[in-house]
């Protein structure tokens, strides 16, 4: 039995982030693995030893401010402890930014983050919006992640941080150094928002496998699933983007 905690589910769930939870639920389901999903919200505490998977989605600026104050109450430290202990974590966009060292606003104010990832984010003056293709390094065979990004913060990794992958098409962390996301132990941060896991089943299974490995202390490979529908969607969209180029919406 695995336990997933959806961090600030009611405030940080823009852009269909719940697709990731649905993907983890169904993929556990299809393999007969019980997965319990619990929402954590403002004012509640996290018990690090009882959580196997953490999910932290994106939010708008206003909500992000509220959440960052709540994290400082002790939830941030609990997230760190859980990850150090081997729990799996997927954080997206705003959630990813909040888990870095700090966020520097356009006025130069530094809002402290949880510090789980050796990364910091700087407010940018242009929004990076569009399709993304990333060659991800999950420690096994490389995997092509296909998704969509929509952020103005630019994230820069510290010297000790390991990116999730390299951007082939799109902006990624900052639009400058071709890195995308971050990976630390079994925790991942990424700008690929919304339903990332359904169309990228290798990443979904990496999360489930990591969580199981930590719980049982052994590395049992997961039972294979029929992923033809998922992989077809992944390759069809990757083919379109590669042929036509990424569509970038212009904002303001």
């Amino acid at each position: 039995m695995l336990r997933l905690v959806h961090l600030y589910a009611d405030l940080m769930n823009l852009y269909g982030d719940r697709g990731n939870i649905i993907a983890l639920q169904r993929r556990c389901d299809w393999r007969g693995i019980a997965l319990e999903v619990q929402d954590l919200t403002l004012g509640e505490n996290l018990e690090p030893s009882t959580v196997d998977i953490l999910f932290f989605g994106g939010g708008q600026d206003v909500e992000q401010e509220t959440v960052s104050r709540d994290l400082a109450r002790g939830v941030g430290r609990a997230i760190q402890e859980a990850v150090e202990d081997g729990a799996a974590l997927l954080s997206v966009c705003g959630g990813y930014q909040l888990l870095g060292r700090f966020f520097r606003t356009t006025e130069g104010v530094e809002i402290p983050g949880v510090g789980l990832f050796d990364a910091h984010t700087v407010a940018g003056d242009r929004r990076m919006v569009g399709d993304v293709i990333v060659e991800a390094d999950l420690g096994q065979k490389p995997s092509t992640l296909v998704g969509f990004e929509n952020h103005s913060g630019q994230t820069f990794l510290g010297p000790g941080a390991h990116p999730l992958g390299r951007v082939q098409i799109g902006h990624g962390n900052n639009g400058v150094d071709r890195t995308e996301g971050v990976r630390y132990r079994n925790a991942v941060g990424t700008y690929l928002h919304g339903p990332l896991l359904p169309k990228n089943p290798a990443l979904a299974d990496w999360i489930i496998e990591s969580a199981l490995g930590r719980r049982d202390g052994l590395e049992t490979p997961l039972a294979a699933l029929d992923d033809r529908v998922e992989l077809e969607a992944n390759t069809a969209q990757a083919r379109r983007i590669r042929q036509a180029g990424p569509r970038r919406a212009s904002i303001r």
Binding site: G16, R18, F148, G194, P195
Partner: peptide
């Protein structure tokens, strides 16, 4: 396409 919204993430909501 642009008029539809280029991001289809919302289908998961």
């Amino acid at each position: 396409l642009f008029a539809d919204g280029t991001d289809v993430s919302w289908l998961w909501d």
